[in-house]
């Protein structure tokens, strides 16, 4: 396969980030790192889909206020979510006069939108781009699984979709954290067919992308203070460690998973941990970015992972492929 790692130096920087989360995420171990939260996951709306849209709109408004920009300062917004036709994001963007491009890579959407934004900014024609993703437990359950009130047991492999949204404002000059490089992943399918077992679907893709990232960038896993996958969950991250060890680049204590970090698995009944398009975007924009500003982490590799799962293809007997993109951040 051709090389797909691109370096940006310090041309692309994070100007500001914002996060908004639901009650379960706020009560989790990372609760204090999130900017905004709400207790009623309907947000006073008539449906959970409308609630997800309101959440995303609130987030983008808050990000604009926080960064003291108005809509005319933003060249482009690249956003996505998990709903059909990324309907939530499209209806969100109807509230803004900002050029918009939709993105979908399942739970790796955040990486896709960051990479696209970084490319456009480093190309010189764009100055300031917002990357954002949202997901909502109740809309995702309905999209991929069963009605909320159906009394079925969650399998031990199931994961809990994060209710929340995270946004990153990238620009070409301001900020102390730079998006230094990215590796674009390919679709990897090892033949896993269990749609509850997302961790096993995505681990091979994560290992493939990370492997190529280290090789093409010429660095060791130890180069990073923190390597963070998106939503492999607890069991999935153990699989990834085995795969990485087999390929000769073992990852150690600097490795963690956003889905594992965001919830307290023992107390919150979330199965293997968090998942969803907002899992990596809330953990990165809330927790990791703030730690980087404080200098606790200097070099971070974020690898959001996505299970490219559709209800139709699973019913037709297709296996579930995974994808992962790697994005590295460094304090400058």
């Amino acid at each position: 396969m051709r090389r797909s790692t691109y370096e940006f130096g310090s041309d692309v920087r994070i100007e500001e980030t914002a996060t908004i989360v639901g009650p379960r995420e706020k009560d989790g171990p990372l609760g204090k790192y999130f900017d905004k939260d709400f207790r009623d996951d309907l947000l006073g709306q008539k449906s959970h889909e409308k609630a997800e849209i309101k959440m995303h709109v609130t987030l983008l408004r808050y990000l604009l206020n926080k960064s003291k920009h108005d809509q005319n300062d933003i060249d482009l917004c690249i956003s996505g979510d998990l709903l059909d036709e990324i309907m939530g994001t499209c209806l969100t963007m109807r509230e803004f006069d900002i050029p918009f491009m939709g993105a979908y890579n399942a739970c790796a959407t955040f990486a896709e939108s960051l990479i696209t934004a970084a490319m456009l900014i480093s190309g010189g024609k764009f100055r300031r781009i917002i990357s954002s993703t949202s997901s909502h437990f109740s809309t995702a359950e309905r999209q991929y699984r069963y009605p909320l009130e159906l009394g079925n047991q969650r399998t031990p492999l199931a994961q809990w979709t994060v209710t929340g949204a995270g946004a990153t404002m990238l620009n070409d000059s301001l900020g102390t954290v730079a998006l230094t490089s990215c590796t674009i992943g390919r679709v990897v399918d090892f033949g896993v067919t269990d749609s509850n077992d997302m961790g096993a679907c995505m681990a091979p893709a994560a290992s493939d992308t990370m492997q190529r990232h280290f090789e093409e960038r010429g660095v060791d896993p130890d180069y990073y203070d923190l390597i963070l996958t998106g939503d492999l969950g607890d069991a999935g991250s153990r699989l990834l460690k085995i795969l990485m060890r087999e390929k000769g680049t073992p990852i150690g204590d600097n490795y963690n998973d956003c889905g594992v970090l965001i919830f307290n698995r023992a107390a919150q009944d979330v199965g293997q941990g968090g998942s969803g398009a907002a899992c990596s975007s809330t953990v990165f924009n809330g927790y990791v970015y703030k730690k980087m500003l404080r200098g606790e982490y200097k070099k971070v590799l974020l690898v959001p992972t996505g299970a490219l799962c559709s209800k139709t293809s699973v019913l037709q007997g297709e296996s579930i492929p995974g994808i992962a993109h790697a994005v590295s951040f460094e304090v400058i």
């Binding site: 961790g199 096993a200 091979p204 153990r238």
Partner: peptide, 20 residues
């Protein structure tokens, strides 16, 4: 890449947690 990877699927069924 579209052939099921038998070795991996065995690893998955061995390593992933089971129903109690």
């Amino acid at each position: 890449m579209s052939e099921p990877n038998k070795r991996y699927l065995e690893l998955v069924s061995k390593k992933m947690p089971k129903s109690r």
